[in-house]
């Protein structure tokens, strides 16, 4: 479904992605973790080409991103992206946030798009907020709307870039549970997160990144019990008991 083959990326002289080789299969939930600046956000942003790659090959859902002829808009329509900062459209109601892309891109009728939006809002538990504006919602609610907005295009892949990092602690659960349901429904997901509870319970595989490279790649039970690298051990220790 997603295939990184020897992918490199530089920001000026900084080597942010260094020889990434990764394969995500259909229906798989991959959690990417690592210290800040390790390149994990850049990695996930290359998958829908918010960041173009400089070298190597990247194939997503059968489309080759290294090929200039690939219709990038078509790819992005098939790949949902959820941002740390939600990025809802502040001038549009919740309903319009969700229905805009299906109406403009898929040529769905307004009525049909709204029905679908209501189904999605039910799924994320926010049917009563259909006419609200983003500024009237809590962070957790905004992020759930953002997930609904991404799902409205019926994507084949969902990408989450630290979806809970900007949330107050008591709102993290509601977003994670929506993501967990999504994973159960068989969605292919790549999730950059520090929520190790989520990784342990939902992920099929955990990738640990440091300094632009994939240091470790393992099933969650293996990764958490027995990390192979010092850097990963250190990271987990800090994350699980930040006081020490």
């Amino acid at each position: 479904m997603i295939n990184f083959i020897g992918v490199h990326k530089w920001f000026k002289k900084l080597h942010v992605l260094n020889d990434i080789n990764l394969h995500v299969t259909q229906g798989e939930v991959l959690v990417v973790c690592g210290p800040s600046g390790s390149g994990k956000s850049t990695l996930i942003r290359t998958i829908n080409q918010l960041e173009p790659i400089d070298d190597g090959r990247l194939v997503v859902d059968g489309m080759d991103l290294s090929d200039k002829k690939t219709d990038i808009n078509k790819l992005r329509a098939e790949v949902g992206f959820v941002f740390q900062q939600f990025n809802l459209y502040p001038h549009l109601s919740v309903l319009k946030n969700i229905t805009l892309a299906p109406i403009k891109i898929r040529r769905t009728s307004k009525k049909e798009a709204e029905e679908q939006a209501m189904t999605l809002l039910e799924r994320v538990g926010l049917t009563d907020k259909r006419d609200a504006f983003p500024s009237q919602l809590s962070g957790g609610q905004q992020q759930r709307v953002a997930i609904a907005r991404a799902l409205a295009m019926n994507p084949r892949i969902m990408l989450f870039d630290e979806p809970t990092s900007a949330l107050d602690p008591e709102m993290i659960g509601e977003v994670l549970s929506v993501m967990q349901d999504l994973a159960k429904s068989g969605m292919t997901m790549v999730v950059v997160t520090h929520e190790m509870g989520f990784a342990r319970e939902v992920a099929h595989r955990v990738v640990f990144m440091d300094a632009g490279t994939v240091l470790e790649e393992a099933a969650p039970e293996v990764f958490f019990k027995n990390p192979q690298h010092d850097r990963a051990r250190q990271f987990l220790k800090q994350l699980l008991s930040p006081m020490h």
Binding site: N48, L50, A77, E78, N87, K104
Partner: peptide, 14 residues
Amino acid sequence: PKGQMEAAISTGLK
């Protein structure tokens, strides 16, 4: 904010 354009093109909008 840059995120607005990113969010929009991420849904497939040109």
